[in-house]
């Protein structure tokens, strides 16, 4: 009998440490599927962030670095400059990429660094227990914005995709979500496109993935999916913000 669905080869057969309902597992799987489909597992090097997904190297079957908080794009740059033939990606959360690592990602994009970044935005710091992130929505309660994020006090959440799309060196920038099967399929397409952008040498590519964090949000799994749709998507619209020039033609 033909097997129509199974574990991607690039995904290790181990149980993850993620909470029930977390989006990381889905995003890892999409990443692994794309690596399989492009046949790049053996020539891919990944860079793990600091955050919930620091242990991604226990789940994805390729060479990996573990970065310091926010520094993944710099490490990826060092690796890629030594081995331009490899496919190099970073996997980063919102605290990692949009707060402490803002400079690194902006300049990697500005240089048109031939790397791919998977940016998981769940609007909170997960691993450290639910503090306010640079992407936390106005009014959203976290342990460090207990009365809800005040724009007057803490400013506004950053739309990283839109910001990065203004840079010449950025070739492919998209925002996707993984809260419904349909959105998951779209997310995979974007991730694949991002890797293809790198393989073709067109420049920096990044996919921002809106992801649910039921544990920290204090919601059920089902409620957290609705929260992505109703609260996050109005502020963080999905779509492609920049596509490689060759595709525009």
């Amino acid at each position: 009998m033909e097997k129509v669905f199974g574990r991607p080869k690039s995904l290790l057969a181990v149980r993850t440490h993620y909470c029930p309902g977390c989006g990381h597992g889905i995003i890892h799987r999409l990443l692994a599927e794309v690596m399989d489909e492009l046949g790049i597992r053996e020539r891919t090097v990944g860079v793990a962030p600091v955050g919930c997904s620091v242990l991604i190297y226990n789940y994805i079957d390729c060479d990996m670095y573990e970065a310091a908080h926010g520094r993944a794009p710099a490490i990826a740059t060092g690796c890629k400059r030594v081995h331009p033939e490899l496919t190099v990606f970073t996997y980063q959360g919102d605290g990692d990429l949009a707060a402490i690592g803002t400079a690194e990602v902006v300049h990697a994009a500005a240089r048109g660094e031939q790397i791919t970044t998977i940016f998981v935005n769940n609007a909170v710091y997960g691993m450290t227990g639910g503090q306010m992130a640079p992407t936390t929505l106005v009014g959203q309660k976290t342990t460090t914005s207990p009365f809800g994020r005040s724009a007057k006090h803490s400013g506004y959440p950053i739309r990283m995709s839109e910001l990065l799309a203004t840079l010449e060196g950025a070739a492919y920038i998209a925002r996707v979500s993984v809260h419904t099967p349909k959105h998951i399929l779209q997310a995979k397409k974007a991730i694949k496109k991002a890797f293809e952008t790198q393989i073709k040498g067109l420049g920096f590519s990044l996919v921002e993935v809106l992801s649910q964090c039921p544990t920290i949000w204090g919601l059920s799994s089902k409620e957290s999916l609705d929260w992505v749709e109703k609260k996050m998507m109005p502020y963080y619209p999905l779509g492609e913000f920049k596509v490689p020039k060759e595709e525009k033609v």
Partner: peptide, 15 residues
């Protein structure tokens, strides 16, 4: 800061 992590990446890549 970025420079030293580029060094980290390049050293890890064997250079």
């Amino acid at each position: 800061i970025a420079a030293i992590y580029m060094v980290f990446g390049a050293a890890g890549a064997g250079a």
